[in-house]
Amino acid sequence: MRAITSFCLLALVVSMVFSGIPISVEAQADPNILLKIASQAQKQIETQISNQQVSDEVQKLFEEGSAEVDSLKDSLENDDISSARNHFLSAMKIFKKISQMILERPTVGTAISVSNTAYSLSSDLERMVKFLSKLKTIAEKHDSGIDFSEIDRLISITKSNIYDGNFDETKKNIVQIKRLLSDIKTTLVAQANESKTARAKDFAQKHLEKLANLIEKVKNLEGIDPSQIQEAERILSEAKNLLSDGNTDEAFNLLRTLSELVKKLRS
């Protein structure tokens, strides 16, 4: 019996200790990912340096990086994960260094300018589409009655404009979409505020009950200043009155003050 109990106690203590350790131990990386990423970087660097004249230093660094990728491959074949990780990090460090050395000079100016504008505008649009999707979910869930047809139409036009390289028109569209999104959010916030008061009141009532219980507990503890207890009870009573009068904002301010006071009393 004693042995069983001791064993159970030990098992529980061990489980308590291990439950506090971050979950990182659970996650094991797929080691082949490391080879995929490193190989892609190696291939990219190789393409870059084969298209331009590079210094001996860059060439030497590339050879070092490639050697690290080979070692990474060998380590994975030998199931030596720890070594594979080191080779991966070393290879990526070298490839980053080479990139910084060779990619400073842009290639064709006009091509980069056009692609930068396209990237920037399409990113703007992507972000807005994502934001709109979130707002739609909220609106649909609460039957807000918002009409999304105009913004959907504008997004569709903007996509076509980006595809056609009509960037001036796209910029105008994006300004319009931004405005519509802002209007939709304002409407949703206004609708949410209508029901916020009821939720806030409900929450405040529960929270005040909890604080009242805590004050009762603290009251009987030794070394507590009675004047502080009186102050807490006064605030509690006032907050309850404000809440019943429908003055939720003021009640919340007092609720926050009271929480701080109770926290101080308990410490």
Binding site: D30, I33, K36, I37, Q40, A41, K96
Partner: peptide, 22 residues
């Protein structure tokens, strides 16, 4: 822990942490 979706046409040339999945 987090996931990270890289942009289209992006090529990773440096990384300081070990990825768990791709």
């Amino acid at each position: 822990d987090y996931t990270l979706l890289m942009p289209q046409n992006s090529i990773i040339v440096g990384m300081s942490a070990l990825p768990q999945n791709m």
